[in-house]
């Protein structure tokens, strides 16, 4: 195995061209308004709900989702499925709704940065049937340039999550709810 490593690196050294410059990437600015972010999220099949006050969160969740949902969340006292990194797959697979904190949103594409620390379990944002991401409206950036500038470290695992899981693999017909969450709602506080 290590012989392949040496062989490959030697071939790369022999064949790569003279060094070309690495450009500096400017920070392209843009519209970082709630309106822009909301319209993009809606365009990719998600919804945005204005919660206004974080204390209203349980009430809004109650309005949006049926009462008997199995909910996993570090943010709600109503959460009734305790999840941590060691939780079994069977328990994870039975979660109806995960309510998780999003770090910041990107207005140009409707994505929200969700690091591992906010997920309870790495698979939770995908295995849950429905996903709600809580986002502080002050934490919006315009483009991916400002987004990556805000990520100090990608940690062990983290994802920019944009709307619900989807596919268009059958005749280019868009279907929401492929393997991940069937719906994604952004709760703006």
């Amino acid at each position: 195995m290590s012989s392949s490593r040496e062989k490959i690196l030697a071939a790369v050294r022999a064949n790569q061209p003279d060094e070309l410059p690495l450009p500096t990437v400017p920070s392209f600015e843009g519209d970082e308004s709630v309106e822009k972010f909301t319209s993009i999220v809606q365009g990719i099949g998600g919804t945005v709900v204005d919660v206004l006050d974080a204390t209203r969160l349980p009430e809004v969740i109650h309005q949006l989702f049926p009462a008997d949902y199995r909910i996993a969340s570090p943010l709600l006292p109503e959460a009734n499925v305790p999840i941590d990194a060691q939780t079994s797959i069977e328990v994870l697979a039975a979660v109806d709704l995960a309510v998780l904190q999003g770090e910041f949103g990107v207005a140009e594409n409707g994505s929200i940065w969700v690091p591992e620390a906010n997920m309870l379990h790495r698979a939770l944002p995908m295995i849950t049937q429905h996903l709600a991401l809580v986002l502080d409206r002050r934490n919006l950036v315009a483009t991916m340039h400002q987004a990556y500038a805000r990520v100090p470290s990608v940690g062990g695992y983290g994802t920019f999550l944009a709307g619900p899981s989807k596919t268009a693999d059958i005749e280019q017909s868009l279907v929401i709810g492929a393997h991940g969450a069937r719906s994604t709602v952004v709760l703006l506080v």
């Binding site: 990437v25 483009t143 991916m144």
Partner: peptide, 29 residues
Amino acid sequence: LSDLSVFTRILTRSATGQPITTYTSHFSK
């Protein structure tokens, strides 16, 4: 890492016209 800002902005716009894929996931550890 900052180079990803360029590539995530052009990849899906060129591919399907989406602004970004639903999941852009960073696996480090």
